[in-house]
């Protein structure tokens, strides 16, 4: 097997990012923060994709996470990040463990469409909610940490630091998870559910657990986005948002835990540059690059790297 160097690599890379974050312009810090937020959502998505399921509705939890942050601050007066994030996890766990009961019975296109339907229901509700700002959404109260209120100018940096820490923990946990029997259980389900059943294991139960984990990751992503952007709106639950997560997942591939992060960062960069150069055609540029990836790199950008033996199991 050789020793597993991925955790060290992940720690080093993210610590480096943290240091770099101190010296780069604010817009780039923000871009990194959003990439990590989206990377977390996509990390959950590839957990499902390795199980053979594509969710077109991770926007549901992304939006839920964002709105919980917003509502906690504006309506409940809770601005402490630790507490707010705890609420986010609880809300995502609660909602996904209810919806999961239904979704774990569906596969393929039916699963994809149902996940999308649920996120569009949330979108519809939010658009109709005058109190929550309808289609405009609303501004989020400034976050605090254990009673400490960072200065407004520095807030981008400390939210970035928070995102790095959450991302690092999530990547490490998911890395361990993907190597575990339960992680491989996902691939087993994708390959042959009948065999899994005859190995004494319920595919539905495994899918249920994976769905809940993916939801929590997506909610974290939404919460970070909300804190960083200082604003939420129903667009977070719109199908195009979920579609972008699928796009990032395809771009990065499922071969490495860090792939979603790299994919998300690339998308953000392409978007930023393309928006500048070609404000009306950047979606075409994104679409074109996706086509190229599907044709030439079906396993994502990661497959460009030379493959080390025995590493394919993550």
């Amino acid at each position: 097997m050789g020793s597993d160097r991925t955790p060290i690599f992940l720690c080093a890379a993210l610590l480096l990012l943290l240091v770099v974050g101190l010296f780069i312009p604010n817009w780039l810090v923000f871009l990194f923060t959003i990439s990590m937020a989206k990377g977390l959502v996509v990390l959950g998505l590839i957990l499902l994709m390795r199980t053979g399921l594509v969710s077109f509705g991770q926007g549901l939890y992304y939006c839920l996470g964002g709105y919980i942050v917003g509502i906690s601050g504006q309506h409940w007066g809770i601005t402490d990040v630790a507490l707010v994030f705890l609420l986010v996890v609880l809300a995502a766990t609660l909602l996904s463990s209810i919806l999961g009961l239904l979704l774990c019975r569906y596969r393929e296109i039916f699963f994809a469409m149902l996940t999308m339907a649920f996120s569009m229901i949330l979108y519809g509700i939010l658009v109709k909610s005058e109190k929550l700002g309808s289609t405009d959404g609303f501004i989020i109260a400034q976050a605090t940490l254990f009673g400490w209120q960072p200065e407004v100018e520095a807030s981008g940096t400390w939210i970035f630091a928070l995102a790095v820490i959450i991302t690092l923990v999530a990547l490490l946990v998911m890395h361990l998870y993907f190597r575990s029997p339960m992680g491989f259980g996902g691939e087993a389900i994708r390959e042959n559910e009948i065999r899994v059943e005859y190995l004494g294991v319920s595919p539905r139960r495994l899918i249920y657990i994976k769905y809940v984990v993916a939801a929590v990751l997506a909610a974290f992503g939404g919460a970070i986005t909300a804190v960083a952007a200082g604003h939420v709106d129903p667009e977070m639950a719109f199908w195009a948002t979920s579609g972008e997560f699928v796009f990032i997942a395809l771009l990065g591939g499922t071969l490495h835990v860090a792939a979603p992060l790299v994919g998300a960062f690339l998308i953000e960069i392409i978007r930023t540059i393309a928006l500048d150069l070609a404000p009306y055609t950047w979606q075409m540029i994104l679409g074109g690059s996706l086509l190229l990836i599907i044709f030439f790199l079906p396993k994502g950008l990661w497959s460009l790297l030379p493959k080390r033996r025995e590493e394919e199991g993550l």
Binding site: M1, D4, L176, Y177, R179, S180, P181, M182, G183, F184, G185, A188, V196, L199, G200, V201, G313
Partner: peptide, 15 residues
């Protein structure tokens, strides 16, 4: 791992 019942130990590697 499945038949041996150590499936639900998410943090010990399979290999």
């Amino acid at each position: 791992s499945m038949l041996g019942g150590n499936l639900f130990n998410p943090f010990s590697p399979l290999k």
